[in-house]
Design a binder for these strands. Structure first.
Length: 790
DNA sequence: GCAATCCACGTACCG
DNA sequence: ACCGGTACGTGGATTGCG
């Protein structure tokens, strides 16, 4: 029979000695189904040296075959490697594990230059070879089989090929959000002792439930109840917030202690597994940790669930219950407070579900483009996402996939950043090259397979003068092909969108898809210069920055010829003083001479620079203030300092009234000194970028982190440490304490005046002649001094 | 012997 | 676990002075 279905995940099981691919999906009624494909076999390639005797090597490989897990087939494969045809033998084995076994032995054989694609995991191999990209619709010939052992409506065996359908809209996936609370009076969470007390769940059909451990009872029944709930609701997607690192880890360990089974998958008896890359996978369902997507919102500095939900507007902090984690035991133990704790857990589950609505549409598009299953696309870094896309493209072009190899880091020169003309400028236009690096990669055909090592004249090659690299003009290289496709697809989608109602669901789907395409294209240069990349290409990366420098330098010359005053520029952008005609001319001239598009990105009524690069404040046409680079947009400065700096910037740019700005700062300083500022606004947040014992110096956040650990808090690389500076003598580090352990009167307000508020304010005000002294002195005094000054 | 100065470390930003 | 360029606070070593 013919079956249409939406593929959500691909896994495999070894039945007897046969690997069986499991295609998890939804049918047209949006019911869960499973399709088995027992026909696929693992394999890898052996690339032969040019003079090797193919037959002889093939025989040699066959001779390695062991009866237990034999080599089934060795055949010649027509493949290219970095654009060149090579002699490659495809070595097919029985079960996935034997790939690992044979790769070493084969690579040691005489005549074998390299073993390739042996590090591609079996289900990903299937996705690549069969074009079985998750989060897409397919049609296939299938035969019914028994669904016994699986929580699906029907099961099938695949007969023949998968045909991918055009339909981009996903079915209505069943989504379940959950959140757990653990009781741990001592701070440290120990699964041997500390019970799970609450599991809150919220599903996309509007049901919200808070499961609570019974007093005097074991949390085993709570966990069982949760398992029952999951299987009853039967979600396609389970979402959590930090659930990879916390909720599932804890549930898994606690279940082990309690000897209960976390049987939440669509394989009966299948339990969550810690898979590669720190992700927890659930058989037959997609577990998506939304924290991974929150990490990609740079505007939110401390990425707790409530902050992210507040930022995205799905649940305001002011409209929900908030409980600091260290007070959970207190709330649980008190009869009156427990209700609040339950409400808190409920709000967490609901915000998690709402975040899923925000993030999943994008994740789905990314999954269908890269081929990474939805539950892996979030944990995959930008580099890996692009890499999977490249791998799919390589298979399409018959290109062999390079191995992942460890290489030493090799630095190279980057972009140009201009020295800004400091001061306030009126009417400034910001121009930038559209997707400069990807377009340079296309324009100069920069790719590992087009680099010419020997002679090449200008008719056949592009030259990168400063570096003495040359790239073939033709044929298009791997990167050029891939980027052209990415940009073309994006263009087509944007054209489609113009004909749609921006409020329609179709529009949203396409918008997420074009965003995903843009992100992949923009990652290509960085990927090329990443030593961990399969298609690492340092010569290419440094060629692109060199070409970028050449391009922006020439654009500056052209601007100056036209009489445009260049105020600042960074990499692919230029800030020039406004002049309607000249800017239009400039845009055309750049287009003609450089063959790249430059366009107006922003127009500032006023923009202010200090002598520092990468920092400016702009006033837009509609009266908004853009702050770039300054403390006000940094996550490692206190809220009070950021607030003051933003206030100062606003006053200066809108009114130019220095006296007013000074008075404003003085008011805040007074408030600080009289303890009228919220402690929350005094917390400094910093990320741990390595294990605590690896730090060479006792930086304040490291000391605070050590103090937190003493309280039993577990800290990982990437954890944010929030600390305040207390009164006393000695270094700042010696006085940096976790904020929740400090009482308001212990805080060193002088530190906040002298090291936070005043420096942040002065960063802007010192340009107007304001000094530290003037900000410290009491309000009103000596104001006249600088009122007359500017 | 001590304050001033310098420099490495560390973090987070820009494009 | 995408790149290089950049600013800047802090701790700790070094320098400069007497």
């Amino acid at each position: 029979m013919r079956l249409r279905f939406y593929l959500i995940d691909v896994s495999y099981e070894v039945e007897g000695n046969v690997p069986v691919i499991m295609l998890w999906g939804l049918d047209e009624d949006e019911e869960p189904i499973l399709i088995k494909d027992p026909s696929f076999r693992p394999y890898f390639y052996a690339v032969l040296s040019e003079d090797a005797d193919t037959e002889r090597v093939a025989r040699g490989i066959k001779a390695l075959s062991k009866p237990k897990s034999p080599i089934i087939d060795v055949s010649l494969a027509e493949r290219k490697y970095y654009g060149r045809p090579v002699n490659a033998l495809k070595v097919v084995t029985t079960i996935p594990e034997s790939v690992r076994e044979y790769r070493e032995e084969v690579s040691r054989l005489d005549g074998v230059r390299e073993v390739l694609e042996a590090d591609v995991r079996f289900s990903m191999r299937y996705i690549l070879d069969r074009g079985a990209t998750p989060c897409s619709w397919y049609e296939a010939d299938v035969e019914s089989t028994s669904p016994t052992g699986f929580r699906v409506r029907s099961a099938y065996v695949l007969k023949g090929d998968l045909r991918r359908l055009e339909e981009a809209r996903p079915p209505k996936l069943r989504v379940l959000a959950f959140d757990i609370e653990v009781y741990s009076p001592l701070g440290s969470l120990r699964p041997e002792n500390n019970p799970v007390i609450i599991i809150a769940v919220a599903n996309d059909r509007g049901e919200v439930k808070v499961l609570v451990k019974e007093d005097g009872g074991s949390d085993a029944s709570l966990i069982d109840e949760f398992v029952r709930y999951v299987n009853e609701y039967d979600p396609d997607v389970i979402v959590g917030y930090n659930s990879n690192m916390f909720d599932w880890q804890y549930l898994m360990q606690r279940s082990h202690v309690l000897r209960t089974r976390l049987d939440v998958g669509r394989v009966r008896g299948g339990v969550p597994r810690q898979s590669a890359y720190g992700h927890v996978s659930i058989p037959g369902r997609l577990h998506v940790d939304l924290y991974n997507f929150a990490e990609e919102i740079p505007e939110v500095k401390v990425k707790s669930l409530d902050e992210v939900a507040d930022y995205l507007g799905v649940m305001r902090k002011s409209e929900r219950v908030l409980i600091p984690w260290h007070e959970i035991p207190k709330y649980w133990d008190s009869r009156e407070l427990r209700e609040t704790l339950i409400k808190y857990a409920r709000d967490d589950a609901v915000s998690t579900l709402l975040l899923a609505k925000e993030f999943l549409p994008f994740a789905i598009q990314l999954s269908s483009l890269t081929g990474l299953p939805l539950d892996q696309v979030g944990v995959a870094s930008v580099g890996y996402r692009l890499e999977w896309y490249l791998m799919r493209e390589a298979v399409k072009y018959g290109e062999l996939i390079p191995n992942r190899v460890e290489r030493p880091y090799e630095p190279y020169k980057g972009a140009i950043v201009l020295e800004p003309i400091k001061g306030v400028h009126e009417d400034v236009v910001v121009l930038d090259f559209t997707s400069m690096y990807p377009n340079l990669m296309i324009k100069y055909n920069v790719s590992p397979d087009t680099l010419v090592r020997g002679d090449c004249d200008e008719s056949r090659c592009y030259f990168v003068e400063d570096l003495n690299y040359r790239f073939l003009r033709d044929p298009p290289g791997f990167y050029k092909n891939v980027l052209t496709t990415l940009l073309r697809l994006r263009g087509e989608i944007r054209a489609l969108m113009r004909r749609l109602d921006p409020e329609s669901p179709e529009y949203r789907v396409l918008d997420e898809r074009q965003r995903a395409l843009k992100i992949l294209a923009n990652a290509s240069y960085g990927y090329m210069g990443w030593v961990g990349a399969r298609w690492y290409f340092k010569e290419g990366a440094e060629s692109i920055t060199a070409l970028g420098r050449r391009t922006i330098s020439r654009a500056i010359e052209l601007a100056r010829v036209l009489g445009l005053r260049v105020i600042y520029g960074d990499t692919d952008s230029l800030f020039v003083s406004y002049s309607r005609d000249s800017i239009e001319k400039f845009i055309n001239l750049v287009n003609e001479e450089l063959g790249l598009e430059i366009k107006v990105d922003k127009v500032y009524r006023r923009v202010f620079f200090t002598e520092a690069k990468k920092r400016y404040v702009g006033l837009t046409g509609d009266g908004r203030i853009d702050i770039v680079g300054f403390e006000a947009v940094r996550g490692d400065w206190t809220d009070i300092a950021k607030e003051v700096q933003e206030g100062v910037a606003k006053i200066i740019l809108t009114t130019k009234n220095v006296g007013e700005a000074v008075n404003y700062v003085r008011r805040v300083v007074e408030d600080l000194k009289s303890n009228a500022v919220d402690v929350e606004k005094l917390v400094i947040w910093k990320t741990l970028t390595k294990r605590i014992d690896e730090y060479e110096v006792d930086a304040p956040h490291v000391m605070a982190a050590r103090r937190l650990e003493k309280l039993g808090v577990k800290l990982d690389v990437g954890s944010k440490v929030g600390y305040v500076v207390t009164k006393g003598s000695g270094s700042i580090s010696s006085r940096a304490h976790p904020y929740m352990t400090v009482k308001p009167h212990e805080i060193d307000t002088d530190y906040y005046v002298n090291h936070q508020v005043i420096p942040a304010a002065l960063r802007i005000l010192s340009y107007f002649g304001v000094t530290e002294k003037q900000l410290e002195s009491p309000r009103g005094k000596s104001l006249a001094d600088y009122l007359g000054k500017k």
